[in-house]
Amino acid sequence: MVATSHDVMPDIELYQPADEATALDLADRLGNEGWLLGGGQDTYGWLKDRNKTPSAMIELTQIDAWKGITENSDGSIEIGAVTTLTEIAKNPLVQSRYGLLAKAASIVASPQIRNVGTLGGNLVQDTRCWYYRRGLDCYRAGGNICYADSPEGLNREHALFGASRCVAVSPSDTAPALVALDATMVVSSSSGQREISAQDFFVGPDRDILHMTVLNEGEILTAVRIPNTWANAEFYWEKVADRNVWDFALVNIAAVFKTTGGTIEDSRIACGAVECVPRRLTEVESAIRGQARSESTANSVAEMATADARPLNYNNFKVPLMQNLVKRAIRG
């Protein structure tokens, strides 16, 4: 018999390392038992409801090396993973060069959550499928069933693309922005550091149904590097959620364009909340290359964006919504 009474924090060890080496060592030593704690916005619910039961938390927010926004000599910027979303949204450098990310960070959840929530946390947060969040032993929780993808499942917020047994979506607002900006994720562990492109950082259920990212046990996302390739490009960001505050996207879109004389030379477009990973619209990008950034170009490719969509019972609306957002992004 499962207890349905929740909302009480269990006993748990709390580690508060102040330097990188200690944190990485702890992550290595504790493995899956060591829950990485950023702003805690995707932590306490899990733990208080006892749907995730790690024995320890490793708080990362005291490590200065993983905080803040710095400019590199090549013009790229590096954002520490435990930098708060508020800081990113308000940072002059981010605002001036990568307004797309500033905007995406400024619309995550609510002001209170952005004040404590970190970029790393927003990127590696778990999916919001309510069945999974309820603590049910579904595929994503290591079980053998998906409750959302069934003839009657409540899946209004679920995936159009890339479902494989699990139909959950990526809830992050900053992830599509970073994919569009061609960012790189810096992943550290006690055995070293590796860099992964933002696009490859996220993983779908076909490849790994238990995780949302390619982070291995003992690894920590420590920074995000944004190349200057798309600095000061033309940006488009929009999030459509049920509510204007404190909601996850029904669909969001992040797009960057390089144009000359109104003609699109290059672009990168990514949509969130339609797949388990931010969905890059490469076919659309190819199709609009050399085209005017106009209403007619937008209309001509909108359906292409959803060509592979497989709507579930209640999320048909995401198809026209995604098409509309693609149109809005392209026509600017």
């Binding site: 209004r156 209640y314 048909n316 609306f317 026209p320 919504l321 509309n324």
Partner: peptide, 18 residues
């Protein structure tokens, strides 16, 4: 009347008519 209902109405989507 939520956003999805309005989108469906405008798009003429009928599949979702529960």
């Amino acid at each position: 009347i939520t956003a999805d209902m309005i989108i469906n109405h405008v798009a003429g989507t009928t599949e979702e008519a529960v």
